[in-house]
């Protein structure tokens, strides 16, 4: 199988980006209308995000990305905007699992080495991130096998559809 490669531009955020900033509670009435909800993605962290993001781009974050609520709408709308992966120094537990369950790769690495606008290439298979703008290479931690399997099926629902059960 060829290596899984993601390519795009870095859109940078700071520490502690909560699910309230990603998909604010005041839009809870749009949660059954996902395309409308997605128009407000990251609105309270960067109101221009939805206009800026291009398919393939990466969210680059500091520590504790996705803290707060369990709303899976958060990684879901991020994925819907075209983001190919989230790179963060650390990620809150529920968001991490939700992101994988949505088939959205979320990688822990030293994001200080990435600036907004940098061209990024991620080799998911080899575990290497290349910052093509600065020439710096980064590595990221390996996921537990069950998460890798879920991710490679595109999320938890397709994974269960395929296997019918969890397989450890």
């Amino acid at each position: 199988m060829p290596d899984m490669i993601l390519k795009g531009k870095a859109l940078k955020f700071g520490d502690n980006i909560s699910t309230d900033l990603i998909t604010p509670g005041r839009y809870a009435h749009l949660r059954s209308n996902l395309s409308e909800l997605a128009k407000h993605t990251m609105e309270d962290a960067d109101p221009t995000f939805v206009d800026k993001v291009r398919p393939g781009d990466f969210i680059i974050a500091g520590k504790n990305f996705g803290l707060g609520s369990s709303r899976e709408h958060a990684p879901l709308v991020i994925k819907m905007t075209g983001i190919s992966a989230i790179l963060a120094k650390s990620v809150a537990r529920i968001f991490f699992r939700n992101s994988i369950n949505q088939g959205l790769p979320i990688l822990i690495c030293d994001t200080d080495k990435i600036d907004s606008g940098d061209e990024i290439k991620v080799n998911l298979t080899k575990g290497v991130i290349t910052n093509s703008t600065s020439g710096i290479q980064l590595t990221f931690g390996k996921l537990p096998q069950v998460m890798l399997d879920i991710l490679s099926e595109g999320g938890l629902i397709p994974y269960i559809n395929k296997y019918g059960d969890f397989k450890l």
Binding site: N98, Q102, I157, I160
Partner: peptide, 10 residues
């Protein structure tokens, strides 16, 4: 413990 919608669905 809290989880997202996919995990709870399953």
């Amino acid at each position: 413990t809290g989880m997202g919608s996919s995990d709870i669905a399953i």
